[in-house]
């Protein structure tokens, strides 16, 4: 009997660089799959510049058959802003983690959103710094143990998890698209990714999707615990849904 092929992957995935370099059980490839499929359906492969940050997101630097630039920690937003400002025909994507977007690159994210830069930011939230070994991030949940909060995050001394899409929705104009998806609902995540890209293609303005994601390696969880953490614990703080949709009814 012939070996069953793997599940269908987007053609924009570069086969020469697969298998990819993410850990088993990582959420990044799921987010990247949603992005790849959306790009393919929108037929914008020739126009995309894909920028990825430092941290685990950098492992996406050769992931796609797309022109890609791996930048510095937090600096993907300005690089893609610069690309887009110089050539508005390009569809600029900035791909980053929660540390890159909400900590070291937060001034860039806030100001790009305020200026209504016509770029798309995809931010993967896995509640800690993955690449550097599991330190506390702006998104770490209260009580969550990480390498730099070994007794659990104490909101008294380190605050509460950053609510990124809520912040972006508050500071953007009516032409921005803002949503939070999750890798536990890939169909919805892909719809959000597509709408975010369409917002840029139509020249409306800034678009931002946070994707709730998985890091069993640093969470130290088995499969069941991993999904419980995503769907139960993270869901308590991070509400999935569309926060801002230009001219249309919101989902979720």
């Amino acid at each position: 009997m012939a070996v069953q092929p793997q599940p269908q992957m987007p053609k924009v995935w570069r086969t020469e660089t697969k298998p990819h370099k993410f850990c088993p059980g990582c959420g990044h490839p799921l987010v990247l799959k949603a992005i790849g499929e959306a790009i393919e359906e929108l037929v914008i492969e020739e126009r995309v510049v894909f920028g990825c940050d430092i941290g685990c997101s950098l492992l996406a630097w050769d992931f796609f058959n797309l022109d890609s630039i791996q930048t510095h920690h937090g600096r993907t937003t300005p690089v893609i802003t610069g690309v887009k400002r110089a050539n508005p025909d390009i569809i600029g994507i900035a791909y980053m983690g929660d540390g890159g977007g909400y900590a070291i690159g937060s001034q860039h994210l806030v100001n790009a959103a305020t200026r209504n830069e016509k770029i798309t930011v995809f931010l993967v939230n896995n509640t800690q710094y993955g690449m550097t070994g599991g330190q506390m991030a702006p998104t770490t949940l209260p009580g969550q143990k990480t390498e730099t909060s070994p007794y659990g995050r104490d909101p008294e001394t380190t605050g509460y998890p950053t609510l990124g899409p809520e912040m972006i929705a508050a500071i953007t104009g009516p032409n921005a698209y803002v949503a939070r998806g999750t890798v536990s609902n890939l169909r919805q995540l892909k719809r959000m990714v597509k709408r975010a890209l369409e917002n840029q293609m139509e020249g409306r303005g800034f678009s931002f999707v946070e994707a709730l994601s998985l890091c069993p390696t640093n969470w130290g969880t088995n499969a069941e615990e991993t999904w419980h953490w995503l769907e139960e614990d993270m869901a308590k703080y991070f509400k999935v849904g569309e926060l801002k949709v230009p001219g249309e009814a919101k989902e979720g």
Binding site: V49, P78, V79, G82, V83, R85
Partner: peptide, 8 residues
């Protein structure tokens, strides 16, 4: 970094 983007 935006200047880097412009060059790219």
């Amino acid at each position: 970094f935006t200047a880097v983007g412009g060059v790219l």
